[in-house]
Design a protein around this nucleic acid. Structure first.
Lengths: 231, 231
DNA sequence: GGAATAGTGTCTCTAAGACAGTATCTA
DNA sequence: TAGATACTGTCTTAGAGACACTATTCC
């Protein structure tokens, strides 16, 4: 960090946050994109994002949370920093910095698609503005990677779930089947779920599944195991 | 990313890069710090860093590389993005963004300590300026974590090394002993080293060790294994 | 030859995966 | 009762660690 000049005489860089908002729908990882109303890239789909508001934002995390609330009405999701993209050519308006976060939300907390805000399967993205396709791909890779050894995918579920449901979520995120016995051993080892006493998923023509919920201590915190699912 | 205004009317944020420059010396992970000549935090030790130069820097990575070259004379080290710290209170001059990189270099590429530039063991840091202590601790945690399943520590070695030397480097980074047989299996699996034909470390009163070098394909690229050293 | 460390073969132990059994619901 | 899926016990298999043995150097 430099020693001189409170506000340097270097030309200002454009300083923004962008959010890769991910959800699981119909067994597919999907990303919520926003259609740009203006140049540059008018009409293209892009990540929801915005300038940092130096007067209001307490941190880059808070700026990302504000963007999510403004553009998608989402409050207090799981929101983690992904990476920062910066350079002179990614935005035609000038040297730009984008601090990128990713968020995971259960499908039922998302607003329905509307003009200018739409979900896309990450496996078939449209043409995206700026370098946003690279960013989405990095976010998906990060989520897949962390899902192998952590409780990250629980943030794609509602607050209660059965183990078969959670296993299906892991399988959708990882893109491959998971051994049932090993999966249950891992979840036990992660120690983040507790059974909801007496609550079972009824109404189906087979043995009902026990319903679990996140222990309060893990509401905002990941749990990790030393060895992953070996997927 | 916002739709409006090429250069927004929001007050400019201070936009910098900082580098956590790490090396291994006397079996200890050490960080190179720079003594601030001016306010704020005049006289305190801080990470080497500097403003982004929008006229010259091709990217944040290039800005970090430039800082390393200017302040420590280091060229083309292993340099990876760590995280971005941002907020209104971390720098008394205003809302600031610091894109932080970490670098690993062999000890013999470092310039010797001089007034204003000094190495500190990461286990006994002095009082640091800004939030730089948190940043160093995150960098060390990241390096430890990645070392469990990747070839990251080879960048702390010179271009040639023996397996016992490399094992000692891993043990110093991880802070605990590593099983020799497992270690050699992992290195074999990583597939990044090749023996230097006929080259052995001589001069010691025991069987000489084979000398290895990084395969050219891995000069700038990490190699990873699915399961780590289980340390 | 002795001391020291390099390098390797192999056994043990832990953890992941496969498989099959029992449990419990609806129709 | 038949069919379906939840859940669990246990065997198999793969990989990590422990241990010991051989190899090669200097003194």
């Amino acid at each position: 960090m430099p020693a001189s000049r409170p506000h340097p005489d270097h030309p200002a860089v454009i300083c923004t946050v962008d959010v890769v908002l991910l959800t699981l729908s119909a067994g597919q990882l999907q990303v919520v994109l926003h259609q740009r109303p203006q140049e540059p890239f008018a009409g293209s789909w892009a990540l929801p994002g915005g300038y940092i508001h130096a007067q209001r934002d307490e941190s880059a995390w808070h700026a990302a949370a504000r963007v999510l609330q403004d553009k998608a009405g989402i409050v207090s999701p799981y929101l983690e920093q992904l990476a920062t993209y910066a350079g002179p050519r990614r935005d035609p308006r000038g040297w730009s910095v984008s601090i990128v976060y990713f968020a995971l939300v259960p499908e039922d907390l998302l607003p329905p698609d509307r003009p200018g805000l739409k979900r896309f399967a990450v496996s078939s993205l449209p043409r995206l503005a700026f370098d946003h396709r690279d960013i989405v791909e990095l976010a998906v890779a990060r989520v897949r990677s962390k899902s192998q050894y952590s409780s990250l995918p629980v943030y794609l579920c509602g607050d209660q779930m059965t183990l078969p449901q959670l296993q299906a979520v892991y399988e959708a995120v990882l893109g491959e089947p998971v051994n049932k016995v090993s999966f249950r051993r891992k979840i036990e080892e992660l120690g983040m779920l507790e059974p909801v006493e007496g609550a079972q998923e009824t109404g189906q023509a087979h043995r009902p599944a026990q319903i679990y919920r996140l222990k309060p201590a893990f509401q905002r915190t990941l749990s990790v195991v030393p060895r992953g699912l070996n997927a």
